Simulated assay, not measured.
Amino acid sequence: MAEGDSPTVARRRVRIVLREARERAGLTQLEVAEEMEWSLSKVIRIENGDVAIAPNDLRPLLAYLGVKDRALIAEMLASAKIARTRQTQRQVWYQSPEFREHLTDGTRRLIEYEAEAASIHSYSVFHIPGPLQIPSYSEALMNMWRDEMSEEQRKVGLDARRRRHDAVVERVGSLRFTALLDESVFMRAVGGPRIFADQLQEILRLEQQKLVSIRMFPFSADAALSYNAGFDILFIGTDNDLSNAVMYRETGTSDEIVEDRATTERHHLRYQKLWDAALTEVETLQFVKQRIRDLTR
């Protein structure tokens, strides 16, 4: 365990070790709950990372799961102590009742990882990535699905988008954000010409601040477009350490955090191939500037 680990990283380490140990032992979450005399929901929340496990609970659980490596046990106990510091300090905004009610588990975990990530690689064929969106663009995008959500859901969703954008902007100098966007993203004027031009201006501003690097995957590219509508790969450590990478992906009806290394590595490789086949950053910015001129004529 590296010194200075955040509670998020420490909690992720503990829950992955617990889940993998349980699966190796051939035990279900219900069997663990019954043996430990816990509720099933407690086991699920620990493995999902919704709560941190207390060191006094961790010791007997590791023994029951057959974890005998003393060094690993010591590491898990140390990580468990770090993981609980966040909960004893304050509740973060996305875990408050209103956000827990209206945001999916996948989205809330994505927001948590965004706050800790050293780098984020975002791929989209439909819209500007959430953390880069201005409020008017987010509102116009969400209004497209207004008949499928309540007003409270829309309000909370817009507030979450705004907070994510502000959190990313505050990390200029400590976060590397790359965005690989299909040409259709730039051609689809969500919200109308004025709003979309303002959104593209924000992209230019963030690029000038060296917060984000953007490449466009053009219609004319002689390469296979990914079937995925969109995914984000977040590295808690360095870009070449896939053991500390997680992936967020969404479809029209669901979203999820993927922590399987093989799946994340496959998508990261796909992202790199598409990035290399796309227009360069300079060419993309030239396209964006021309697009702004066309929208504001």
Rank of each mutant, 00 (worst) to 15 (best):
E3D: 13
E3L: 12
G4W: 03
A10N: 03
R11N: 12
R11A: 13
V14I: 07
R15K: 11
S39G: 13
S41F: 00
E47T: 14
N48M: 07
G49H: 02
D50S: 04
V51N: 00
N56Q: 12
R59Y: 08
L61I: 10
L65E: 03
L65P: 03
G66Y: 05
K68S: 14
A71T: 13
L72P: 15
I73E: 14
M76C: 11
A80D: 01
K81R: 04
K81V: 06
I82D: 06
R84M: 08
T85S: 13
Q87F: 13
T88C: 00
W93V: 14
W93N: 10
E98R: 15
D105P: 06
G106F: 04
R108W: 05
E114Y: 03
A118K: 11
Y123H: 05
Y123M: 04
I128C: 08
Q133K: 11
E139I: 03
M142I: 05
N143L: 11
W145G: 10
M149A: 06
E151T: 09
R154N: 10
D166R: 09
G173Q: 06
L175K: 00
L175P: 02
L180M: 07
L181S: 09
D182E: 13
D182Q: 09
S184P: 00
V185T: 05
V185C: 07
M187L: 15
G191T: 02
Q199P: 04
E207V: 14
K210R: 13
I214G: 00
I214H: 02
A224G: 08
Y227H: 07
G230L: 05
F231R: 07
I233S: 10
N240A: 12
N240H: 15
L242T: 09
S243K: 13
A245Q: 02
E250Y: 01
T251S: 14
E259Q: 14
D260K: 14
R261W: 08
E265T: 10
E265I: 09
L269G: 10
R270M: 10
Y271T: 05
Y271C: 05
D276Y: 01
L279N: 12
L285Q: 11
Q286M: 01
K289R: 14
Q290M: 11
Q290D: 11
R291I: 12
L295Y: 01
